[in-house]
Design a protein around this nucleic acid. Structure first.
Lengths: 335, 335
DNA sequence: CTGTTAGCGCCTTCAT
DNA sequence: ATGAAGGCGCTAACAG
């Protein structure tokens, strides 16, 4: 039933070489011959066997994506970008979920490499674990990292964290806030580190000192963010503004503010990294730094395909700018 | 560099047949020989070439998943279930996104079949398009459908729509509501049809007639749901309770209620199909029918692998029960 | 302009 | 208890 190239050759009365060349457009074939071959292909419904081809050419036209956590909308948004960029080039996407677990991530990378994908796009679960780095470094397959920077000579697609956060926190400071808290993120992630750096930069640029005790890190989920925020407002020196380091955190922070009957922005100013899909549900919308997720995905594809084509180009780190969605949640502090 | 089975054979001084049998445990090999082969494998870091194996055995240990829309949390939740079920069996997952577009779906299925996946799990974009059915029917690869029922002799993993919705809407009726609206869904999807049927059933079981004009279908996104809900309350015969047909719809409906300053449940009772991740942000939580998404995924894997192993078993339709998360958003109608 | 042929790496029947 | 060898379907020299 599964027709082979040889069948097509026999039916159209030519050699397998010719059929192959017709299919791949890889050398000149007389038009009438092409015609015959095309007909045979159409009549038999022949499809090249990708495994035979992969075996022969040592290239599979497939790339793997290791998501740090498929249930995070960031991952899936990037994945959309990857999927559509690959589709238009005829590549196939293999997906594995690391579920924010470095062990699973390790296994996932391994499994994908074993499957001999042509390239790999990884959203790392950590940006500090030297063991993981070592694995990633020695993968032996073109890799592009996404979201979290890693101190390796690798292609990476990142986001302008420092500047964009500095801008927004700067807006808060310029509005008169002097106690701007930041909540969220794992202390070990480069994204956290950089966004925090933006927070500091906003202060120093204005000759202000920032109170490090207002940076609440190592908060891993919405529930913890909620608690952390509540505690922030238990203190005598309450913040007057909060910057959320990610979409998941925003959920918990906003919940806490609502618990405390604090209204945004009249009681507290608020802004967040990552756009929020349920923003419309809030009584007062929220200013966000939306990541260009689809573009992150397509850029990653770009980089990995480039490297596949030319493994020796210098590694590139692309920084994409988040876009500011100003929804007016930053106001003057209450007096 | 990429060691082959032949290399291992040479190094350990045995035939390729023996190495193959050691790897696959497919016939008896003397323990000492096994030892030698194992060593050679360990020393060389040999990994079997999956393409050669696939070519030879005509089986790739990979299955494809066509998501109706990867940006919907339902799809990704199911995908998690699929991914983890496959991982534990050493299968690889190929993913394609149909983006709720039948044409893309068609292409995606095609691409995956062309890649010769061993099986396919599809969350169909439509459950009415005969053309799509035809394609799916003739795939020639074991397929399992998920989420939307289709009138075909195929394995399907679905959810108990009728009964579960009837229960919840029944609660509303029993609380005294006589005008229960339902909002959301595409009229053509079986899930919509069935959930609507549950709504009707709740009425007829109680000897009540239901006002079909309170069923607002063909609402495709949160924005439309919001408008539709607003219009519902413009009518002289306003509903006193609303049942949302899906997570995306809930967002729009709740937004509209908030616009109208209607409080749940004192002004309107509300309940929804699908759990809501941002439920905590609401001033008043919402009673939901949460789908067993991970289990849907793992069941789909179960079915597809069973069919791969035995293509001739009768097709099975598995119905899983959603779980009711009662959060008290159903109360007596205001008087 | 086209055909012949030698593998890619693996599994598996047939021998012994 | 193990080997020899053919072939899965395809591509790419090489040879006309």
């Amino acid at each position: 039933m599964p027709t082979s190239l040889a069948d097509v050759a026999r039916i159209s009365g030519v050699s397998t070489a010719t059929v192959s060349h017709v299919i791949n457009g890889t050398r000149y074939v007389r038009p009438e011959t092409v015609e015959k071959v095309r007909n045979a292909i159409a009549n038999t419904g022949y499809r090249p066997n990708p495994y035979a081809r992969a075996l022969r050419t040592a290239t599979s036209e497939s790339i793997g994506f290791v998501a740090s956590d498929v249930s995070n909308s960031y991952s899936t948004a990037v994945m959309r970008g990857i999927a559509s960029a690959l589709r238009s080039r005829g590549y196939t996407l293999l997906v594995a979920d690391a579920d924010e677990n470095p062990t699973l991530e390790h296994e996932a990378i391994d499994a994908l490499v074993e499957r001999k994908v042509d390239g790999l796009i990884v959203a790392p679960t950590t940006s500090t674990d030297p063991v993981s780095f070592e694995q990633i470094e020695q993968i032996g397959v073109p890799v592009v990292l996404v979201d979290r920077a890693v101190p390796l000579e690798l292609d990476q697609v990142l986001v302008e964290n420092v500047g964009s956060v500095a801008d927004v926190v700067g807006q808060m400071l310029d509005a008169g806030h002097r106690r701007v808290a930041v909540v969220g993120g794992r202390a070990g992630h480069s994204s956290t580190v950089e966004r925090l750096q933006g927070w500091r930069k906003a202060h120093t640029e204005r000759g202000l000192v920032c109170d490090e005790s207002l940076a609440i890190l190592d908060v891993f989920d919405a529930g913890q963010a909620r608690q952390a925020t509540t505690r922030l407002f238990d203190r005598p020196d309450r913040p007057t503004a909060i910057f959320s380091l990610s979409n998941v955190m925003s959920l918990g922070i906003l919940r806490a503010l609502s618990d405390l009957h604090l209204v945004v922005p009249s009681d507290v100013s608020f802004a967040a990294f990552d756009d929020i899909e349920w923003v419309d549900l809030l009584d007062h919308p929220v200013t966000c730094l939306a990541q260009p997720t689809e573009q992150i995905g397509s850029t990653a594809v770009e980089l990995v395909l480039t490297r596949i084509a030319n493994p020796d180009v210098d590694h590139r780190v692309v920084r994409l700018a988040p876009s500011l969605c100003d929804r007016g949640s930053i106001a003057e502090p209450p007096r």
